[in-house]
């Protein structure tokens, strides 16, 4: 069992949703990127998602796309991302890499899986890889005992949900809205129905992401999901922090962690 699976099981035993926090590696550079990701952990995030900066992030809104651009300009490489993963996983937290597919294929799927396992990572989230095209990744993730998180969306048919959840391991990533990453004012009205549909096909934990950015939204999503996934809100904090970005990240993680625990919020 991966650290991720253990973590999600523990949260479930505590009767609460897990908090998953995302930041790209090397954002704004390698050292500060590691510091920001560790600040997620210090602030109370249960699972860390490390973004692998990519030149063509079609599922990302302007905030994360700009962060990827900053990271690439700072010289982000797969080697840097793997070192970042190692630095984060060494804290004992469950850590995954979120990556578009081409860098993995270019690195070679088997070699990438071995490197992730070696760095102490739990697995990959693959937003543009469908199980239909994932033969090499299914084999490699089995060989290296890694979790594989595929996405479902409000537009997914029941057939697609059945197929996708069959190949997921760790958790199922439910995209709460039709769209790209980025904080929305309103919590999704489609997400609860999607999560309910997913549960008809799997006992795996279901994480909800896209559009969640505040403690109130986190608390709301935590009522029906097993994991609350927050990305753009953290990235925005880093962009906005004039001096101490890790402190800003830590503060938001703390608010969101309280949110998923159902604590009274911001009154």
């Amino acid at each position: 069992m991966t650290v991720l699976a253990e973590t999600l099981r523990r949260c479930r035993a505590e009767g609460r949703a897990a908090l998953v926090g995302y930041l790209p590696a090397c954002f704004p550079d390698f050292e500060q990127g590691v510091a920001n990701l560790r600040a997620l952990v210090d602030g109370g995030v249960d699972v860390v998602e490390i973004g692998l900066p990519y030149s063509d992030p079609v599922l990302d809104g302007p905030v994360i796309a700009r962060a990827s651009d900053v990271a690439l300009r700072a010289g982000s490489s797969i080697a840097h991302v793997l070192r970042t993963l190692e630095a984060v996983a060494s804290t004992g937290v469950a850590a995954l890499i979120m990556t578009y597919w081409n860098p993995v294929e270019r690195y070679r799927v088997d070699r990438f899986a071995a490197a992730v396992a070696d760095a102490g990572g739990s697995g990959l989230i693959t937003p543009d890889l469908l199980p239909d095209e994932a033969e090499a990744w299914l084999a490699a993730s089995d060989a290296y005992h890694l979790d594989r998180v595929f996405l479902v969306a409000p537009s997914s048919t029941d057939e697609r949900i059945a197929l996708t959840t069959r190949f997921c391991r760790g958790f199922v990533y439910a995209a709460s809205v039709m769209g790209v990453t980025g904080v929305r004012e309103q919590a999704s009205t489609q997400a609860p129905a999607l999560v309910a549909r997913v549960r008809r096909y799997t006992d795996l934990p279901v994480g909800v992401g896209l559009g969640v950015g505040t403690a109130e939204q986190a608390a709301e999503v935590a009522q029906y999901a097993d994991a609350v996934i927050v990305g753009s809100a953290f990235v925005r904090r880093v962009f906005e922090a004039s001096a101490d970005a890790p402190a800003a990240v830590r503060a938001l993680a703390g608010e969101l962690a309280a949110g998923v625990r159902g604590a009274p919020v911001g009154r």
Binding site: V58, L129, L130, E133, V152, A153, S155, S156, T157, A175
Partner: peptide
């Protein structure tokens, strides 16, 4: 049927677009 020309083609997209 899945859009492959030998090893090429296919679909590498977010699940959200599969239905469309």
């Amino acid at each position: 049927a899945a859009g492959h020309f030998g090893p090429f083609g296919g679909r590498f997209v977010p699940e959200a677009l599969v239905a469309a």
